[in-house]
């Protein structure tokens, strides 16, 4: 190949050296070899579509009161053609609420997971790479985070910061980075003695470059694993907080719906159409996160694979 031919092939080569492409390929490999992980990805895909399309698809505004033709509030309606899943005690359309609930779940789940992964990976990278006092400090912080009982702390913080969906996300990031941080640190500790990391130092790479260009891509799959688990945790936690009444009253979430149903004695009235759909959605979303996490885990630690 002459140098001009090489110049022509350049874009193809540079494209193939992207780390993100690599990460996507890994995810694809996970989905292909594990049916559960694929199911998880499909669930997230459906949720994403629902969340994006909610304003278009939902027959009613989930916050609006609906009226019967006779002008009465259409409260506590059983499922019917106009209201597929019936209405709440205030006459709101449950089906529309379920659809909009996907938005809250996805926002909380993914933003919190992203925050957890970023914070946890950064902490792990710095602690593992620098060791010494940096490690000492960060790991003692992790110990503190481990020592805090998660749910009570989350509730207290949300109550203190004010009930908003972003505060819920913030609290989860602040409390959940610890697992990711610990695991990434352990991985970095073993990676930094590998020859290729030493090679980067010998070639003159700075500490930051060594950390982010040479070590980080090798811990990213592990970060993704903890990220996908964090999605499930975050959705579950948001539901719990909302169910306990500390959630954002202006945002329709599945946890909020459950609380609404519980407070208006929907269970006593056997209004399954009200509390089963949001519960099912929470379960599916959390399961999806764990399925994907499990798939990653099997790819990363092949010994866990069933024989």
């Amino acid at each position: 190949m002459s140098s001009s031919e090489r110049a022509a092939a350049l874009p193809q080569w540079t494209r193939a050296t992207s780390t993100w492409r690599d990460a996507l390929l890994v995810t694809w490999a996970v989905a292909r070899r594990d049916r559960f992980a694929l199911a998880g990805l499909v669930i997230y895909g459906v949720l994403l579509v629902v969340a994006l399309a909610a304003p278009v698809v939902a027959p009613y505004n989930p916050q609006d009161l609906n009226y019967r033709p006779d002008g009465e509030v259409a409260a506590n309606e059983v499922p019917s053609l106009p209201h597929w899943l019936g209405t709440t005690n205030l006459g709101r359309d449950i089906f529309s609420q379920v659809l909009f609930g996907a938005r809250a779940a996805l926002v909380v789940g993914f933003v919190a997971a992203f925050g957890v992964v970023v914070l946890g990976t950064l902490v792990g990278l710095f602690a593992g790479y620098y060791s010494g006092w940096v490690d000492m400090l960060l790991m003692r912080l992790a110990d503190v985070a481990f020592g805090i009982p998660f749910l009570p702390m989350a509730i207290v913080l949300v109550a203190f910061l004010g009930p908003s969906i972003w505060n819920t996300v913030l609290v989860m990031v602040l409390l959940l980075w610890r697992d990711t941080g610990r695991v990434i640190r352990a991985q970095v500790l073993s990676l930094r003695t590998r020859s290729y990391v030493e090679a980067a130092r010998v070639l003159g790479a700075s500490h930051l470059r060594t950390m982010f260009v040479h070590i980080a891509p090798n811990v990213l799959p592990l970060s993704f694993l903890y990220g996908s688990l964090a999605v499930g945790w975050a959705i579950l936690t948001e539901a719990t907080i909302s169910f306990l009444g500390f959630g954002d009253p202006n945002v329709i979430s599945w946890g909020f719906m459950l609380q609404d149903a519980y407070n208006s004695q929907a269970m006593a009235r056997h209004a399954f159409y009200w509390f089963v759909p949001p519960g099912l959605c929470i379960m599916l979303a959390v399961m999806a996160g764990f399925f994907i996490g499990r798939g990653y885990e099997e790819l990363l630690f092949p010994r866990l694979r069933r024989r």
């Binding site: 780390t19 690599d22 020859s195 290729y196 090679a199 130092r201 010998v202 070639l203 040479h214």
Partner: peptide
């Protein structure tokens, strides 16, 4: 660092496993 270079004992570990050969060689 530019003047002193090192050849590692274990060639299987001396290159970043997630980098292509081109990417590894562009690094210096």
């Amino acid at each position: 660092r530019r003047q002193v270079q090192f050849i590692f004992q274990n060639p299987y570990e001396a290159l970043n496993p997630r980098f292509t050969i081109l990417r590894s060689l562009l690094e210096p």
